[in-house]
Design a protein around this nucleic acid. Sequence first.
DNA 1: AATTCGGGGTG
DNA 2: CACCCAGAATT
Length: 302
Amino acid sequence: MSPTFDAAGVRDDVVAWFDEHARDLPWRAPDRTPWGVLVSEVMLQQTPVVRVEPAWRAWMTRWPTPADLAAASTADVLRAWDRLGYPRRALRLQECARAVVERHGGEVPDDEAALLALPGIGSYTAAAVRAFAFGRRSVVLDTNVRRVIARVAAGTALPAPSQTVGEVALAGTFVPDDDATAARWAAASMELGALVCAARSPRCDACPVADRCAWRAAGRPGDEHAARRRTQAWAGTDRQVRGRVMALLREAIGPVPQDAIDAVWPDAVQRERCVDALVADGLVVRVPGRDDDAPPTYRLPA
DNA sequence: AATTCGGGGTG
DNA sequence: CACCCAGAATT
């Protein structure tokens, strides 16, 4: 990027674009709560907006506050999470609710360190909650913002596989000092990345900063890190096996017999490794049989 | 810095 | 069928 790159100009144009094109998402509604924002951010960790929206509505109707979720049965929480992916996130969200109740009197904290100390809340989510729930200045750097900045300022097709210190510093140059504008930039840059500056097929013709974009000026070169990116395999992995076990337990009314578990995956070694891991993760409970000979049963945590 | 952790929609 | 999705925690 040029040392005279006009980050402030880009920011202002993107914020103006956002005022016209922002999606009407429920966690942006005027009646949203900080807890609702936090729930949305955890659900959105690696799960697309279109799948989160209906789940979020149902979830917030059922458990509107941290205290409500803290008091819920974990089995109900995991069932409500359904197929949003990575069920450990649901577990962490309930742990987060309990921590908010115990440490902060049931109110989501607006302090960065306090947010980061909550289960399931990392650097992105802590910054996002500060910006979107409290309107405070923070450097919100998700996959969308990373891509927007990589293109417009660094001139690359995609950001590096892992986030760097320099990248965070560069992102900081776009964030103004005042809370309100900083929060708007956070939402606007994410929205631009999601709707226009997309990973797969960017719509540069609809981009408010196309004429300022270093990547476009360079002729939209290909991804320099393409060789090192490898999408995670799915078929045959432990993640698929774990997913099948969790799906079985979510749908079960009562205790699930060992036979039923055995039926979800043919490879006994892999299957047992996965079930053991799920038990260790706190996602599954193994109930010993009556006798030593009797096989155990399985269920979701109470 | 590299791995692991779901699941589904799309070009 | 590879790729992507408002990442976090662990090693």
